Amino acid sequence: MVIVSSSTVAEECFTKNDIVLANRPETSRGKHLGYNNTTILHLSYGDHWRNLRRIGAIEIFSSSRMNAFTSVRKDEVRRLIMKLSRDSRQGHFVKVELKSMIHDLTLNNIMRMAAGKRYCGDEVSNEEEAREFKELMAEIFETSGRPTPADFFPVLKLLGEVLEKKDKKRGKRLDGFMQKLIDEHRSYKIQGIHNNSMIDHLLSLQESEPHLYTDQIIKGFIFKEQSHKLMSFGMGRRACPGASLAQRLMGLTLGSLIQCFDWERVDGKEINMMEGIGLTMPKAQPLEALCKPRPIVDKAFYQGN
């Protein structure tokens, strides 16, 4: 292990010399949650990885595909603004917990793009399916940020077997959930129903190139989504392929929250930035703040309703 503490050297590692760091070790978690280490996240650098990267760049995260889902991003942000304003329209500040709201916004945006469905908040078409999805995501995001000790220290094999058994169970549940979505959209296509989702688009490509767009590759893409001073999405070959989507959604969301509300800290206290456990490095304490809607909210969302 080498610790790089210079931003200049870090930038060089992930741009000019990134091929040296482009491989990924095979892990038990990648085996069970990443289709035997074959998804774009777990796969080592090579021909297959380059092909997956090409599919992501051209067919999923291209500018044209991102533009096609602009209405989805706008609608989810609008729902967030409405939810915040409903509880604070009396002209005074109210305390709100933002972590769960932003979490729901993110999952709904991704799943509406991927499968044309909302799984959080209102207008959820299938409550049982939504509950299963949210449980799976919570488990996977919490555990995926933790390495399995036995992958690095064989002497801990017994402990590794216990953790691997849990990952294997999660992997089967996740695969079953995603396969059900694909089969559902395949049935829609037979019925002539099309909702312009990512799954629909990839299934259309599967018809002409089935060897490139297998069900496994489609499932591997459903849930997988720069400044050298803040490498939130990485850099170079292994940079996150969904960075452009995240930047579009974050810009729209943050801009809307700033424009539509006045914000203050709870009791004037500093925000606790201590990190929690999980793949996305969540805050240990959910973000709470005081918000009060500005007049623009009434003008933009309530006039004429």
Rank of each mutant, 00 (worst) to 15 (best):
F223C: 13
T280A: 14
L33F: 03
K269P: 14
S187P: 08
Y45F: 13
L257M: 08
E12N: 06
R24I: 08
Y302M: 14
Q285W: 00
D47I: 01
T214E: 06
N195D: 12
P293C: 15
L202I: 04
M231I: 09
P241F: 05
C13I: 04
F14Y: 11
L158D: 06
G255W: 01
I190Y: 03
G268P: 13
L279F: 04
I55K: 02
S5P: 03
T214A: 07
E209Y: 05
S88W: 01
I81S: 09
S204P: 04
M231D: 02
S187E: 15
F69Q: 04
S44A: 06
H185V: 02
T27K: 09
E209A: 12
S5H: 04
S227A: 01
S6N: 08
G121D: 10
A68P: 03
L156K: 03
L249R: 00
C120V: 01
I199Q: 10
G304M: 10
R173W: 10
V96D: 11
N109Q: 09
N108M: 06
Y188I: 00
L158T: 07
K269A: 13
L252F: 00
H92T: 15
K172Q: 14
M101F: 00
L33K: 02
S197H: 06
R24D: 09
R86G: 11
C13L: 08
G34M: 11
V20Y: 10
D167G: 03
D167W: 12
A114W: 05
Q90L: 15
A130N: 08
S227I: 00
G268A: 06
R237V: 06
K166I: 11
T39H: 07
A57E: 06
L84M: 13
M198T: 03
L156Q: 04
S187Q: 14
L33A: 07
A246H: 00
I190P: 03
S6D: 07
G220E: 10
F261A: 12
E135G: 14
R65L: 02
S62G: 01
E76C: 05
K157P: 14
I60A: 06
E288V: 09
K172N: 12
I271H: 05
A22G: 07
R24V: 09
N109F: 00
F61A: 04
A284Q: 08
D175Q: 11
V9S: 08
L257N: 07
C291G: 14
I199Y: 04
G46T: 01
G30V: 09
S71F: 05
L290D: 10
C120S: 11
G236K: 02
E129G: 11
K157G: 15
S232H: 02
N17I: 01
A300F: 01
E127L: 15
R186W: 00
Y302K: 13
R50Q: 08
A239P: 02
T15W: 02
Q179L: 14
S64T: 00
Q216N: 08
L41I: 13
Q179W: 02
H42C: 15
V162M: 12
L202C: 02
K157A: 15
F152A: 13
G268I: 03
I258M: 13
A68L: 09
D298S: 15
F93R: 03
